[in-house]
Design a protein around this nucleic acid. Structure first.
Lengths: 143, 143
DNA sequence: CTAATTGCAAAAGCTTTGCAGCGCA
DNA sequence: TGCGCTGCAAAGCTTTTGCAATTAG
């Protein structure tokens, strides 16, 4: 039950919070902006305010339920914290996002950070490139 | 002469452009936001508009003279393109930035990207961590 | 001289905040 | 019931854009 998850995070189990949590859980690969979440809820007939979406997502982030990424200039995207850590490749052309884990990079990251007197707290790494995937190109055309 | 650099980039050698280019060259480790550049110029007695700073930095980026990074949420920072490519570690606490190159990560990045159907165009990588450096901690306190 | 460039101010995104009313515990 | 939460609207920030005046080549 999602209610418990919210309680555990010290948050009242209100309708907007439940809906937003559900929405993030539904979408397997969910890198949604606040705006995305807002529109999805409106389309689903829910009556929430954009401000609430921002507030809830920020609270979720503080509670460790979601991660916020600043992929491209402008807006943030949110993602449910589930399972293992992973990193991202973002297509500069179409915004397509792919998750990956590379043990060697993971290890080197820590070494590099250590060598420069850093403790890798949140361990975030983002590659920017151009996607040559068919699906991605289709998306790019669709813009 | 900086004038030549601008001409080569197809840009008229105007005073604001020269000043901005000089400013970026002066500061050895220069990760400046548009606002930083603007204020630095004002303090130096130059009479430029913030809009011009943004326009010039964007043109410089297009010309390959500078790189733009979206380190933290909110604002971009600019850096002169000199010498070799490098990546960054950003301290989440104090904003302190360290540059590094790790050949192994470089190589893995390309492999990972390739394996996922991406061509690494701009090759940007940013680590976020907490800096334990003395100099950095001093900075953090100074905030 | 002509086209590019600038400064100012206004506008455009994304995100946060103030506040009165509604809802969970 | 009481405090937390929500929605709306307004404000905040960074960045972009329109336009008349200015300047480089």
């Amino acid at each position: 039950m999602d209610k418990h998850e919210l309680r555990r995070a010290g948050l009242k189990a209100t309708l907007p919070r439940l809906r937003i949590l559900q929405l993030l859980e539904e979408r397997a690969v969910s890198h949604m902006s606040a705006e995305d979440v807002y529109r999805a809820l409106l389309e689903a007939g829910e009556d929430v305010g954009l401000a609430t979406v921002y507030r809830v997502l920020t609270q979720f982030e503080a509670a460790g339920l979601v991660s916020r990424h600043h992929f491209e200039g402008g807006h943030s995207v949110f993602e449910l914290n589930q399972g293992e850590h992973h990193d991202h490749i973002v297509c500069s052309e179409c915004g397509h996002i792919v998750e990956f884990i590379d043990p060697i990079i993971e290890e080197r990251q820590n070494r590099v950070a250590e060598a420069h007197g850093f403790r890798l707290a949140d361990h975030a790494l983002v590659l920017h490139g151009i996607c040559t995937d068919t699906k991605c190109e289709r998306r790019a055309r669709g813009r």
